[in-house]
Design a protein around this nucleic acid. Structure first.
Length: 583
RNA sequence: GCGCCCGUAGCUCAGUGGAUAGAGCAGGGGACUUCUAAUCCCAAGGUCGCAGGUUCGAAUCCUGCCGGGCGCGCCA
């Protein structure tokens, strides 16, 4: 059962008190926030005073009095006016114990399911066939996977769509090159990459080959059996590679979520006709284009969305429109999220605007570009995919895992080789994912391998370590669930230590933060929360002995440990990061 | 030129219009016979790019400027 946080309960009570103290005025948001000066502080009463045209401290005093008059059984132990009209709020120890007990008794830790009944389509990862995945794919994959986990945890239906690049003119040159230089045996990603490089080089230097490649594109589009068979082989090989990468990364995408660009090809002709019929598309120099209003280019003229090229081929805009239409009509999306790099912002806006104009986007469906920044080197220069080589995803992950293995092996000399491999993977992958998820996604991303895999400080490893310490304590009790129970919390009395209070308050906000991540599509908020939670636990760990405490206190502390452990484990899982029992 | 994003500690970054702007890393000083020291504590480090404006109150909202990144007709 959902357990509202103390902050929301207190906010509701303040709103009620404002209504009581000033019945004729619509009460503003009480703005209850965590505070350095108390457990919580409310800033919104100054706004109420403004609406009343009266001195803020006076009004705040009346609201506090109204609050005090109805506080029987409430969670507050104290509230006082401070500064220009803030209200500092202290929650009662009993209220904290009850909150913790309620969360501990609930398998969902008291987190509600506000997404129940909503379907969200998430477009993420989107690697290209016959190309290695690089850091840009990593961001989309990791962020998209985290959002999928969060929305699904909140009760929503999530439909992942891996929009892989499996169509386009480059396949003509790949297939033609394979045709002229047949490979034997299996290919593997390395061979595919080599094929891409060789085909591309020949294409650029050999005009005759380039022409044969163009013919090969025509053959592919016409469904020539031999050509299609080779194409399928290329796609299948890449799909196997993607699946390996996802599994290694603990990403939930599977081949079932793969909906390549090729699948929309049969619908593009009709789509262009529909746009024409709707009066949105028109001919321009032999191409078919849409001019969504409000998009102006270099010379002040409208920027076209090219749905069909002059040569008769369809551009990616057509594919994107077909995909969007499919997601809304067939997949019944209430919300469509595009986890795509920020440089595509204008393109996506034009696609969204065109879809809206065409009537393919009903009002109740929201569409959002979940943009993330470009990948920069440590010199601050962007790493270009085409010119230089963007760092390969596998290289980065392998390096992180190797460093993790060195540290894990150093701390656990007796760990069997097999367990070492798996734990190093969990730690290394967790470090990479956390580094990616913990900064706000809109910013450009500085690719810093050293910082990413350092395994100290504000990293995924810190969170895993805090979790492992929790587990270590609980393992030492004979019956952790029985002793570290909700009942133990409720049986506790006497004042809580400051470190216990701070930990309990952090634990209480978990559901609010997860809901916020869903609302903003910003996983870094969850990272920040989990880091402060781990810090609060560490402070508790340093100052509050658990196993050696007197029985009543021991029960309370064990219960706090267990709730912390389960909150960390759940939070890490929502980020796609493992929480091993031991580090 | 137009549009979008971004300028916060030496570096990498948090920061819901609220009180004294916070973390991590690096560098300095301390703490392991102790439930895991992958940790913790202390000190140091800032014209929040600049200038105006709105507000009781601005890193946060508005305007202008400076600096950086990205995008802007047939690649995806």
């Amino acid at each position: 059962m959902a357990v509202p946080s103390l902050a929301t309960v207190v906010a509701d009570r303040l709103t009620a008190a404002m209504r009581h103290a000033a019945p004729d005025v619509d009460p503003p948001d009480p703005q209850v926030r965590e505070s350095d000066h108390a457990d919580l502080q409310a800033n919104g009463l100054i706004g109420l005073a403004r609406r009343l045209g009266r001195p803020p401290r006076e009004v705040a005093g009346e609201v506090v009095a109204a609050l005090a008059a109805r506080k029987a059984g409430g969670p507050l132990a104290g509230c006082e006016v401070a500064g220009p009209g803030f209200v500092n709020l202290t929650v009662a120890d009993d209220a904290l114990r009850h909150q913790m007990a309620a969360r501990l008794a609930d398998e969902r830790l008291g987190v509600g399911e506000p997404e129940r009944g909503l379907t969200t389509v998430i477009d993420y990862s989107a690697p290209n066939v016959a190309k290695p995945m690089h850091v840009g794919h990593l961001r989309s994959t990791v962020i998209g996977d985290a959002l999928a986990r969060v929305l699904s945890h909140l009760g929503g239906t999530v439909v992942a769509q891996n929009h892989i690049g499996d169509w386009g003119t480059q396949f003509g040159m790949l297939i033609q090159h394979l045709h002229e230089h047949p490979h034997t045996g299996n290919h593997g990603i390395e061979q595919l990459v080599e094929l891409y490089r060789a085909a591309n080089a020949t294409f650029d230097t050999d005009d005759a080959f380039a022409e044969r490649s163009r013919q090969r594109v025509v053959a592919l589009q016409a469904g020539d059996p031999e050509t299609v068979a080779v194409w399928r082989e290329l796609v299948a090989e890449s799909t196997r590679y993607f699946a390996e990468v996802y599994e290694h990364l603990d990403v939930r995408l599977t081949p079932r979520d793969t909906v390549g660009e090729s699948l929309y090809q049969p619908h593009l002709s009709g789509l262009v006709d529909d746009l024409r019929t709707a009066g949105l598309a028109r001919d321009s120099d032999g191409a078919v284009v849409v001019f969504p209003p409000g998009h102006v280019g270099r010379d002040g003229s409208p920027v076209p969305l090219i749905v069909r090229k002059r040569d008769g081929g369809f551009g990616y805009a057509a594919t994107d429109l077909a995909a969007l239409r499919h997601r809304v009509s067939t997949l019944a999306a209430d919300r469509v999220l595009y986890v795509v790099g920020a440089p595509q912002a204008q393109h996506l806006r034009m696609v969204f605007d065109t879809a809206t104009a065409a009537g393919w986007l009903p009002d109740h469906v929201t569409v959002a570009h979940i943009a993330f920044g470009s990948v920069l080197g440590t010199d601050g220069r962007p790493l270009k995919t085409r010119s230089g080589h963007a760092p390969g995803l596998s290289d980065l992950v392998d390096e992180a895992v190797a460093r993790a293995r060195a540290v894990v092996a150093d701390r656990n000399p007796d760990l069997p080789a097999e367990a070492l491999v798996e734990r190093a993977r969990q730690v290394g992958v967790g470090a990479v994912k956390y580094a990616d998820l913990s900064t706000s996604r809109g910013r450009d991303y500085t690719f810093d391998p050293d910082g990413m895999v350092s395994l100290t400080g504000n990293t995924g490893t810190y969170l895993q370590y805090a979790h492992a310490r929790v587990r270590s304590i609980l393992r030492r009790t004979g019956d952790e669930v029985g002793e570290a129970s909700a009942g133990a919390l409720l049986a506790g009395d006497g004042p809580l230590e400051p470190a216990e209070r701070r930990l309990a308050l952090r634990l209480d906000s978990f559901g609010d933060v997860v809901t916020e991540v869903a609302a903003t599509s910003e996983p870094h908020r969850l990272c920040g929360y989990l880091f402060t939670l781990a810090q609060a636990y560490t402070a508790f760990y340093e100052t509050c002995p658990v196993l050696t405490a007197p029985p009543a206190q021991r029960g309370v502390r064990l219960a706090l440990c267990r709730l912390t452990g389960e909150t960390l484990r759940t939070g890490l899982d929502l980020l796609g990061i493992a929480a091993p029992e031991r580090l």
